[in-house]
Amino acid sequence: MSEFLFLYRGGQRASDAAESDKVMQKWVAWMEDLGSKGHLKDRGQPLDPAGKVVRGKQKVVTDGPFPESKDVVGGYTLVTARDLAQAAELSKGCPIFDTDGAVEVRPVMEM
């Protein structure tokens, strides 16, 4: 088994509390499913959209992050899978797709 990082990009906030609650419940169910099948290595952490970017030799600090807010990474999870194809397949259950977001699936480089 190899390790893969899911990076959650974009995805819109729900408009009201009832809706956010439903979305959250879907995520929890998805995570539980990954866990019960033995794919969950580390649930990971959500990331605050506000941030700073430090860049270049001059170490210029700018308010972050990024040109396109729809691409901002909102969190990550570490999973285990047979190969990249299976990891990508696993990501398809993520509720982020309901809200126009994306999952970036990246293999962790092995020694």
């Binding site: 906030r13 509390a17 956010s20 609650d21 979305v23 959250m24 995520w27 929890v28 995570m31 649930r43 990971g44 952490q45 959500p46 909102g74 969190g75 999870t77």
Partner: peptide, 13 residues
């Protein structure tokens, strides 16, 4: 509330 839900969806309730 929204922040809590964003954390819970990854970390669990």
């Amino acid at each position: 509330f929204c922040r809590a839900l964003e954390i819970w969806r990854l970390r669990g309730v």
